[in-house]
Design a protein around this nucleic acid. Structure first.
Lengths: 242, 242
DNA sequence: CCAATAGTGTCTGTGAGACAGTATGTC
DNA sequence: GACATACTGTCTCACAGACACTATTGG
């Protein structure tokens, strides 16, 4: 074991003088805008030696060993810097590391995914929302960020089948039809109103507020997320997919 | 963006002369032995400067930028080195990184979890199986490996509720009662025989072989995993827990 | 009154849970 | 034949899906 460690570069005095991979954190930030699922992307800088100059990429960057206590704090920092949002749903997605994904050398990124309400975003000028259509992004991304995004979309869709995650995409107050619409946008298929309502209401995740949304038709009850914002797991998925 | 990158240590000529975290990979390896869930642990070396000398730890170590093409290959290599197993179920569990988890400095580990059949293991001398009782390991582990293991156990239990993962813990040929027993070991609760059989058989994940397991009673049909060993996802969990 | 959307009720099918009952081997 | 374990059938219940029906607003 000590032998193995030495072979991998750990000197006998515990020196650690062997090449280390680059370590980054990237964040896939989703929101609903314009009745569509959107993801926040930034444009890469154009400086000398910058890989993928001016390409689109996920927001992210190197771990700062002086500033970041841990990976989650680093992800939260990047989310904050880009959107101003501080307390959203933030979940680890996975990590991608290889010799070839970054031309600057062996690198590993820790990817997170975040759900925020659209209106919460106060974006920096280099960041823009891009729509997801048919479960895919049209644009090509730098590095392997296309793979990471595809994984994030799949994970989101998967979890939406049996969790309350879409609630984190909603504004502070929303109606049940609003929430159902967001489920349908993410899943890209219609859901049955009655079953949807039963399920959400029996999950004890939202509570009515003393207001109605008024419109040119029957008003709808407004709800808000209950405190203790843990996501709810249902014991069945929606439509058993085929 | 370029400014941000520079502030984090990237020189204007694309130099990368800023401190990098240590990068490791650890593997949580599960198997069934002696009618119990077990995890494979190794003893830390005792050399100078080694953190947690002689403590128990998950098998793992530094990413070798010369040897390892990517993180999954690194995890597979460590699994192979410790057990000789080459083609098991290997899934990424998550990553843990912080300033304090390793006394040698800011470090991030990419954790994987593997399921192997007991008999597949030809262990190196420093590796030993430890039983999981009541969903927990008795022994204390080095670093934050206790947290990682707890996460792995939780993930395993969770997924066993609605997937065919326990199939990867089985030997090449097994009976349905055998498989049910493994589900029960992992979940630590009895399952209903009839519902279990219906579920597994309708999932189209195993196929009978032309043999029976004989014993002092009625023989049982032997099965094997079908090719294309993707895990199966069920649309419901087992017993809706409470 | 009509249009439009919110919200409820009713019927049916599926599959889990419970458990009894049958099948097939050894001793 | 006794036993042990493998396997099947039957009944019930919970809940999703489908869809019709009622409710409540603005125009």
């Amino acid at each position: 074991m000590a032998g193995e460690a030495r072979a991998e570069g750990l000197g006998k005095a515990g020196q650690l003088d062997f090449p280390r991979p680059l370590t980054t954190v990237d964040v896939v930030i989703f929101a609903i805008l314009d009745d569509r699922l959107g993801v926040l992307l930034v444009q890469r800088p154009a400086g000398d030696g910058e890989p993928f100059p001016l390409s689109l990429a996920l927001p992210g960057g190197f771990v700062d060993v002086a500033k970041d206590r841990d990976l989650a704090a680093c992800a939260a920092r990047k989310l904050k810097e880009k959107t101003g949002v501080t307390s959203p749903y933030l979940e680890q997605l996975g990590s991608w590391g290889s010799a070839v994904r970054d031309p600057r050398g062996w690198s590993a990124t820790h990817a997170y995914f975040a759900l925020i309400p659209e209106e919460a975003g106060v974006l920096t000028p280099d960041a823009r929302w891009f729509p997801i259509r048919d479960g895919r992004l049209k644009e090509r991304l730098a590095f392997d960020h296309g793979d990471i995004l595809a994984t994030a979309i799949q994970r989101l869709r998967n979890k939406v089948e049996y969790t309350s995650l879409p609630a984190y995409l909603m504004p502070a107050e929303f109606t049940l039809p609003d929430l159902q619409r967001v489920y349908e946008i993410v899943l890209d298929r219609p859901l049955e109103k009655s079953a949807f309502r039963t399920r959400i209401l029996s999950a004890d995740m939202i509570e009515p507020v003393a207001k109605m949304r008024r419109g040119p038709n029957r008003p709808a009850q407004l709800y808000r997320l209950k405190k203790g914002r843990e996501p709810v797991y249902f014991v069945r998925t929606f439509n058993p997919p085929e």
